[in-house]
Design a protein around this nucleic acid. Structure first.
Lengths: 261, 261
DNA sequence: CGTAAATTTGAGGTGCATCAATTAAAGTGG
DNA sequence: CCACTTTAATTGATGCACCTCAAATTTACG
């Protein structure tokens, strides 16, 4: 039950914080370059987590904070009835492993975390965060900012699950993930391409938006027949973004991380 | 459509921050007493908002941050199809009005806010928050802490709406609100009483957990017949907390605000 | 190339929605 | 304090979106 250590230590040399390509999205974005050196001292290491492996399970004690460096992860909870709810999709730059994501009142994780594809993580000890924030108050502001961004997504997620039908929920989810990936790759990739690598199974989609995989399948088929999307294999293609955003009530501006105030 | 100024200015004298009875729950909790004076300079005033009046509407431009001093409020969103999703219940000490609660990318509110009973608010200008945080880094940490607490509630809300049936959702909601109110009144009230003032209509309950008011009614009746709760008039009584927490999968420890790390 | 995992499809059932009408409760002004 | 009005609660009949279970088919992968 308590399978641990799916993590593999990264081979050296590892990425320096100073040269980190995703830092512009990450917690340390606002830390001055000169201070990154000692910040990096706090870091444990970089780790590799293979696809479909668990990083932590609800109940385990937590002592590590993570920044996702490369890959896709999910944060989810298994209920008493065995059902699974996916709470959050993690993309490169996302920060997690603390309180609601998910250290509970007992000190153990409230949720579990799983890699959807081979992923790389930067880790440092939970105990250091407050210390670092006291030395670098910018860090606290940036953390609040990131929290708010995640909260925004969580609220949209809630709105969908509470008040939208299957098609509306799925349209929103596909567009959200599509745009989040695109925001990452804005330099690397062909802007005009409307496809992304998409590692979710239909069961994952269902557990994110509160539907059965069978119903997800039927809904995806419908949307394909209408020529809105293509979602098969490891790729997602958006063919009619306008129709999708309209039914899903999705506005791409929610994806952009805004300053706190 | 754009009805404004449901707010009434409070009669003087107003409560001093230094003597504020809810500060132990609020944003300024960790600000040293000596600094509260100049903090208070930033504050606009205290306002009264009558029951069932709107504080702000989605779309309006935002320039005020609020701490709820007394009363109950909800934050909600109206979808294109006219349906309403309640995102958050605000109790005294809660802080809101910023980004996800709810300033969107356009600078306007994403959500609306409504008083469930006569309420009192402390207000200060949006533009001051960053300034205050720079002078008082504790404030940023405290803000992140409160955000995380709210995020936790939001995630539980999502779990319920996504993966629980009507009875489980309602049981969780009633217990959550019951315990939050009790935590407030821990000194004022009789600890042993299992009743609280409860200003939600059945439609409010439905819009919080994603059900019709008709179905909420039938479910509440069921739970009353089983002797679990009594929810009528302006009161909620918990009669069988064990049964309720078990079906709702509610753990009162999630209510307690934990330090950031 | 063989096995496991994911997708696809079908038949049948149900939890909750929808719509509508009735009853009860809460305000409101005289 | 009572008639009046409005709002909320209650209840019933009917329908559908989505679930459940299961089998067939396709795809992924060592």
């Amino acid at each position: 039950m308590n399978k641990k250590n799916n993590l593999l230590q990264c081979p050296n040399p590892q990425t320096e914080c100073k040269e980190c390509p995703i830092r512009k999205m990450a917690l340390f974005r606002d830390v001055p370059e000169d201070d990154l050196g000692w910040m990096q001292e706090f870091r444990n290491s970089q780790y590799l987590l293979p696809a479909r492996e668990i990083l932590f399970r609800q109940g385990e004690t937590a002592h590590t904070l993570y920044t996702l460096f490369d890959g896709w992860l999910i944060i989810f909870k298994i209920l008493d009835n065995g059902k699974r709810q996916i709470l959050r999709f993690l993309l490169p730059g996302d920060f997690f492993g603390f309180q609601v994501n998910s250290i509970g009142p007992t000190g153990g994780y409230l949720h579990s975390s799983l890699a959807l594809m081979d992923s790389t993580l930067c880790a440092f000890p939970t105990t250091q965060l407050r210390l670092m924030m006291e030395k670098q108050p910018q860090l606290a502001i940036r953390l609040a900012e990131m929290e708010m961004h995640d909260m925004n997504l969580c609220q949209h997620h809630l709105i969908g699950t509470g008040r939208k039908n299957a098609q509306e929920r799925i349209a929103f989810l596909l567009l959200e993930l599509f745009h989040r990936v695109r925001l990452q790759k804005q330099n690397d990739y062909d802007e005009s391409s409307n496809s992304i690598i998409f590692p979710l199974t239909q069961e994952d989609i269902g557990d994110a938006v509160g539907l059965t995989s069978a119903h997800v399948n039927r809904t995806l088929r419908e949307m394909e027949k209408k020529g809105w999307t293509q979602c098969q294999g490891k790729y997602l293609t958006i063919r009619n973004e306008e129709a999708l955003s309209k039914t899903g009530q999705f506005d791409p501006r929610i994806i952009i991380s805004k300053p706190l105030i």
